[in-house]
Design a protein around this nucleic acid. Structure first.
Length: 471
RNA sequence: CGCGGGGUGGAGCAGUCCGGCAGCUCGCCUGGCUCAUAACCAGGAGGUCGCAGGUUCAAAUCCUGCCCCCGCAACCA
């Protein structure tokens, strides 16, 4: 059986799953389900990134161990399996023992290659927080928590990764596979970035200041910087390096990430793989960001929409649909409550739900039972999927809905039932076939709805409203 | 001269790579239907495709310049 591997990025466990990650998980899930439905052996990995200063600090604040904190914070991510029907096969935590071992082995390989070296690293440091601050942490050049204190510049000796050595190799990778990064504009962006020249990046922190990380092999004074450790999950989840048999079956795989992650996934991680002597990823899919009324969601703007809120209003499949259909793959999407309700009502309630409802009602009077077929995905649908045009695949389904509605209007089965019973049966068989096709094609997108429609075909399956209209 | 994205009927978007009658959803108007979730079907009004030049038989699409909006700016996981 052919193998397929897809993985999301690992969200950092400093909060509940936000809408951006929900989008990523749903997109990955749709692709994974599609591949599974067409018969592939699929590994679909998600998980949580659990090391680093932020987590260490939060745990300290709460008076619990970092591990306890992570155990708790990781749960809602694992629960996405139920809350959004994300059928991952692997859920990795960067605190998993096997991952820790893998990260250390990976480090050794890069070190053996001569790509890891020590150098002084200068950082901005807030004495109030006793923490390193990056530029994006700062507001007006000051720590938002302690705006009255000046930031100090602290130097410490860190290990660095020779990213700069991989410029040519990365450019070659992009050139050899122009679809390595999808969409194309993101490939262009990364090519331009790498072409400008690369700076080595720091891959460790002093354990004395920040102990919550994977120990650097052979140097207890340092822990790996979270980045380095977290990226390794994409291969450790497959068993690397301990179960090479499993690893080799599934690697390389497809990685999906937000546009904020373009560099890390398509350049830094690829350079790390090259350094460790491992084949690069198969493909990097870069999705857009979820905006709210034209603006980036942020806590300070108070325009954050949580997945929970959406699920409460639109249900699991409704939420999946709205996230998937809000923009073509790779583009930013703008969500507002009004427009979501509009889309939900138009496509799911009035479109799909109503069609199924009217056909099922008409079919009640049939003497001959409809026998479901074994279905295959049409070429057009498959090709939309293979180029990750998920909204196009959905449009294909909606065109079937429109066609069926039109067909009903033209043939008027409710009249045929009285005047020409034979034709009535024939028309209904056709319509039921359409419904079955629609349900099948929606399988990757709206798994629960798809199953529900299928259940209507079975003798004991009662009918129910698929999507209640929202006022 | 930092990088990238965008500006298309009232609203939200596709189409731009590979030029060829401007498309979709919502809303609005008219008609039809009554099997269905106040749904569904047909027809219609509404657009200088940001601005100005250029190339071409032909430009939303290619080239040049300009204006406006939005992200990112490397170790943020």
């Amino acid at each position: 059986m052919s193998k397929f591997y897809i993985t999301t990025t690992l969200p950092y466990v400093n909060g509940k799953p936000h809408i951006g990650f929900a989008l990523e998980a749903v997109q990955a899930d749709v692709i994974a389900r599609f591949e599974r439905l067409r018969g592939k052996d699929v590994i679909f990995n998600i998980g949580t990134d659990e090391h680093g200063a932020k987590i260490y600090e939060k745990a300290k604040e709460e008076g619990i161990t970092p591990q306890e904190y992570c155990d708790r914070m990781s749960k809602p991510f694992r629960a996405l399996r139920e809350t959004l029907d994300i059928h991952f096969t692997n859920f990795i935590r960067t605190t998993d023992e096997f991952h820790v071992r893998a990260a250390q082995e990976f480090w050794k390989r890069c070190a053996d290659r001569g790509d890891i070296y020590k150098k002084n690293y200068r950082m901005k440091y807030c004495v109030g927080c006793e923490l390193e601050k990056t530029d994006s942490d700062l507001v007006d050049g000051r720590c938002p928590e302690h705006p009255n204190r000046d930031l100090e510049t602290v130097e410490e000796e860190n290990y660095f990764f020779r990213f700069s050595h991989y410029r040519a190799a990365l450019l070659r990778l992009y050139e050899n596979d122009p679809k390595f990064v999808v969409p194309e504009k993101r490939l262009n962006e990364i090519v331009a970035f790498v072409d400008r020249g690369l700076h080595d990046f720091s891959v460790s922190r002093l354990a004395q200041k920040m102990p919550w990380g994977i120990p650097v092999p052979g140097d207890e004074a340092h822990v790996m910087y979270v980045w380095f450790d977290a990226l390794v999950n994409y291969i450790s989840t497959l068993g690397w390096p301990e179960d090479m048999d499993s690893f080799e079956k599934f690697w390389p795989g497809i990685q999906i990430a937000g546009k904020d992650n373009l560099r890390q996934q398509s350049a830094m991680w690829q350079a790390m793989l090259l350094s460790a002597g491992i084949e690069p990823s198969r493909k990097i899919l870069i999705h857009g960001h979820v905006m709210s009324a034209g603006q980036k969601m942020s806590k300070s703007l108070g325009n954050v929409v949580s997945p929970d809120e959406l699920i409460e209003t639109f249900g699991i499949d409704g939420t999946r649909y709205l996230l998937l259909s809000a923009a073509p793959f790779g583009e930013d999407m703008d969500i507002t409550k009004e427009r979501m309700i509009e889309k939900y009502n138009a496509d799911l309630a009035n479109g799909l739900g109503n069609l199924v409802s009217r056909v099922m009602k008409l079919a009640e009077g049939m003497e001959e039972k409809y026998v479901p077929h074994v279905r295959e995905f049409p070429n057009e649908f498959v090709s939309s999927f293979e180029s990750y045009r998920l909204t196009e695949a959905l449009d294909f389904v909606w065109s079937l809905v429109r066609r069926a509605n039109k067909n009903i209007e033209e043939t008027k089965p409710w009249e045929l039932k009285k005047t020409d019973y034979e034709s009535f049966e024939r028309v209904l068989q056709e319509l039921l076939f359409d419904i079955e096709t629609i349900a099948f094609l929606l399988g990757p997108f709206l798994p629960h709805t798809s199953e529900k429609i299928f259940s209507f075909f079975s003798s004991e399956g009662g009918r129910s409203v698929l999507f209640e209209r929202i006022r």
